[in-house]
Simulated scan of single mutants.
Amino acid sequence: MKNAKLKEVIEHHLRYEIGMLFETYRLIAAEPFGPTRTAFVEAFCIHARVLHY
């Protein structure tokens, strides 16, 4: 049971969080300053925090 859950986390959740981190970084770089860019920065921080723990 424990190994199956770890496998799920690595194969699905970790891959998702890393992908979202890179995607939000790309969006930040492409967006001019303003409320939309601020939202992308906040999303980036959330995904970075999830990966940190």
Rank of each mutant, 00 (worst) to 15 (best):
residue 10 I to V: 06
residue 6 L to D: 06
residue 2 K to W: 08
residue 11 E to M: 04
residue 48 A to E: 07
residue 10 I to G: 02
residue 22 F to I: 15
residue 19 G to T: 01
residue 24 T to C: 07
residue 20 M to W: 01
residue 9 V to W: 11
residue 48 A to G: 09
residue 38 T to N: 13
residue 39 A to E: 08
residue 27 L to T: 02
residue 15 R to I: 09
residue 24 T to M: 09
residue 42 E to T: 10
residue 44 F to I: 06
residue 30 A to I: 01
residue 53 Y to W: 13
residue 34 G to W: 02
residue 42 E to I: 08
residue 39 A to Q: 06
residue 45 C to V: 13
residue 49 R to K: 15
residue 22 F to P: 09
residue 44 F to L: 08
residue 34 G to M: 00
residue 38 T to C: 11
residue 26 R to I: 00
residue 33 F to M: 11
residue 8 E to T: 09
residue 18 I to Y: 04
residue 26 R to K: 10
residue 15 R to F: 05
residue 48 A to S: 10
residue 27 L to R: 08
residue 35 P to I: 08
residue 13 H to W: 12
residue 20 M to A: 06
residue 27 L to K: 09
residue 15 R to Q: 11
residue 4 A to H: 09
residue 9 V to D: 09
residue 35 P to A: 07
residue 40 F to M: 04
residue 28 I to A: 00
residue 2 K to E: 12
residue 49 R to I: 12
residue 47 H to D: 02
residue 37 R to N: 01
residue 23 E to V: 10
residue 45 C to R: 15
residue 46 I to M: 14
residue 51 L to E: 02
residue 10 I to L: 05
residue 23 E to Y: 13
residue 37 R to I: 00
residue 41 V to I: 11
residue 31 E to G: 01
residue 1 M to S: 08
residue 37 R to L: 03
residue 28 I to D: 00
residue 50 V to G: 05
residue 48 A to V: 04
